[in-house]
Design a protein around this nucleic acid. Sequence first.
DNA 1: CTTATGCATTGACCTCTGTCAAAGCCCGCA
DNA 2: TGCGGGCTTTGACAGAGGTCAATGCATAAG
Lengths: 259, 259
Amino acid sequence: MGRRMDMRFDLAQKAQDDGAFVMAATPPAKGCGGQYCDRCEVRDQAICADLDEKQRVALNRIGRRVSLQAGQTVMWEGDSSTLVANVIEGTLKLSTSTGDGREQIVGVVYASDFIGRPFGARTPHSVTALTDARLCLYPRGTFDGFAREHPALEHRLLQRTLDDLDRTRAWMLLLGRKNAREKVATLLLDMHRRLRADRAGVIELPLSRQQIADVLGLTIETVSRQIGDLKRMGVIALAGRRGVRIVDAGRLEGMAEGE
Amino acid sequence: MGRRMDMRFDLAQKAQDDGAFVMAATPPAKGCGGQYCDRCEVRDQAICADLDEKQRVALNRIGRRVSLQAGQTVMWEGDSSTLVANVIEGTLKLSTSTGDGREQIVGVVYASDFIGRPFGARTPHSVTALTDARLCLYPRGTFDGFAREHPALEHRLLQRTLDDLDRTRAWMLLLGRKNAREKVATLLLDMHRRLRADRAGVIELPLSRQQIADVLGLTIETVSRQIGDLKRMGVIALAGRRGVRIVDAGRLEGMAEGE
DNA sequence: CTTATGCATTGACCTCTGTCAAAGCCCGCA
DNA sequence: TGCGGGCTTTGACAGAGGTCAATGCATAAG
């Protein structure tokens, strides 16, 4: 565990520095009269979708756009909860760690997803950008107040949270009861469902091997071996470090279920 | 896996029969004018806490009380979502299974908790009584409508769902990254926090060894060995099959964190 | 109080996954 | 185009936890 732990602390340190830098360097919030929303890429999927023009302008007034680079951390596990946000673009991870540095990724969020902990004092997990990303960021207290006054927003947030909970519980079955082969197969299928493949059918994974291991509760070596096996068996094909093409989806699905 | 699987199917079958029987045998719903709520044991903790008298009467009119015996299942994974409920008394488990019968308990719910999947078509996991229990049961569609018209109720539901999600994600760290000793220690501490100990300091676990294994992603044998070790080390004492007394809480906490 | 039944414990063994260590190979950079 | 560093792969080995099987022991029925 020594090796792994050291690496963790390096990463955490690095991310923290980067994160602090970016947050400080972001221009101050300014009222932007809703013009962002009009051309917002996710406005029909995000929790603000059911707000009318006037409400959206009001919400916009309390938020601001922020850009993140891959690797930057927006929120830290255990910190007091001061920010929430909509993801406009990019992929981020939610993660927790044990005291001795073992990490578990507890969620991966995509464009239009919501992050942060509204109505609560503490952030229960860290949030880190896996790719470059853009957020629509709100101060938590202000957002809470706005949400309480807009049931349509709260309802959307509830729906989203219920869906997250379902997905998270489904992932518990994977963590507790699936073996390495089933875990890797399930993840590849899951990513294939969420990410768009290019014309060659290749998807670009937003996760490194170590991060895949952290999602699946495995080590990087086991992940590497499983992916290698799947490639040798002709079920998937690899394109560089992050590219994957699913060659035999049926067989991969069978493997995900342990057949 | 053969042995385990057979047992699973027996259990599932048995529970299903029992469950069907009880649900059919329950007297039909009748308007009860809110008199149940007045003496409800959980009315200040459940999601109905913030409703006023009139609203509570209206909610009560769409619900009914149901008693369950230990082992009975109220909802099945994958079924269409037709019921939601408040838990008045007792402990229940939420569980999912793989196609070949491996089970994972994805949640344990106690008095005042909410069960079922509002605003969704499918029940994502089964719900089974671990002890005798009493529920305040609502038809899902009717409940959904009521909730949409009562933001105070939806807000409580949101808060509860956010808390559940936090707890569930914390459990993912345990499933993915903790070893058997840490898992068992964590569970015992968690139960000790939730359940009231008698004057001798003994808590009665609502879970059998197999169910503990299903919560922790272990086998019954590993759970048994770990509990045996903790007893031999003098960290806990056992009283019958279900009784546990924590002798050295500090040491147990250390073990839960992997020290 | 005795007995039967099912849950729990214990033991022996094995396998999957983790650990440690050494190459290998992308990919950005010069 | 060549180089360097970090990520990834591969190999050898160890050990935690799973599997199979037998025994022990609460609990409830008689």
